[in-house]
């Protein structure tokens, strides 16, 4: 093997790569936010006593967990407009698809976290006159949150990695920029090694932040 590395391709196209990183972070952050809000709703429906909610939430989780994210992405972009007339830009399609996909996993995290809180906690909350919503907000979710940090970090990290799929639809994320640069500079080895490293650092930062948070929460109880 006598490949000669030339890393100047990275520094020369720095601004181009930074644009990709920003786009990757943007897609991840927005779809993660959607996943959290939607996931909480679906998770609460899953543990609800209403059979309609329960069945809907169960079906939602199964559908999105058991089909590939890439298929969902393409479906939202190409099939949804034909079937419903809803036309989304490539970026919006990606964010929507990753958001609803992530929601299925986040819903399961919420469900498991809430169910890990002993039922006596809810009883005690209701016995002082708290409504269901208030007992969730003040008593159950703050306790469930602690159990949820590790699986939630997994989900955030995997969403960040899945965001590379958006390059398929031409969204100029980090992976897409790398592909473009490779074809113009003929330096895919340097470029893809570099962006692999960037993804690693970003994911590692999320895990690290979560560990700090977890340690701080443990200190308070």
């Amino acid at each position: 093997m006598n490949y000669e590395f030339n890393w100047t391709v990275v520094s020369e196209n720095w601004d181009y790569l930074i644009m990709g990183i920003v786009q990757t972070l943007k897609v991840t952050a927005i779809s993660l936010s959607i996943a959290i809000v939607l996931g909480l709703a679906i998770g609460l429906m899953r543990i609800s006593k209403q059979p309609v909610f329960k069945k809907f939430a169960g079906a939602y989780v199964e559908v999105f967990r058991n089909t590939p994210a890439l298929v969902q992405l393409i479906w939202v972009y190409y099939c949804l407009p034909v079937l419903t007339g809803i036309n989304l830009s490539p970026t919006a399609s990606c964010i929507a698809a990753l958001g609803v996909n992530g929601a299925a996993y986040v819903a399961e995290i919420f469900r498991a976290g809430i169910q890990a809180v002993p039922s006596g906690q809810a009883e005690a909350a209701r016995s002082v006159g708290m409504s269901y919503a208030m007992s969730m907000r003040k008593i159950i979710l703050p306790q469930a949150f602690r159990h949820m940090i590790p699986p939630f970090v997994n989900e955030a990290v995997s969403l960040l990695k899945y965001s590379s799929l958006v390059s398929v639809l031409g969204v100029a994320d980090l992976t897409y920029q790398a592909q473009t640069l490779s074809t113009t500079t003929f330096r895919p080895i340097e470029i893809f090694t570099f962006i692999g490293f960037v993804y690693f650092i970003l994911c590692w930062l999320i895990s690290w932040a979560a560990q700090v948070l977890e340690r701080r929460l443990r200190a308070s109880a």
């Binding site: 002993p118 006596g120 906690q121 009883e123 005690a124 909350a125 209701r126 016995s127 002082v128 006159g129 708290m130 409504s131 269901y132 008593i139 703050p142 306790q143 602690r146 109880a221």
Partner: peptide
């Protein structure tokens, strides 16, 4: 309705076998 039930519950204190203190 839940609102009325909750108001009633504020007037009735309950102590449980397993305490059920809010752990957080």
């Amino acid at each position: 309705p839940e609102k009325i039930v909750n108001r009633k519950r504020t007037q009735i204190g309950m102590v449980f076998q397993h305490f059920n203190l809010f752990n957080h």
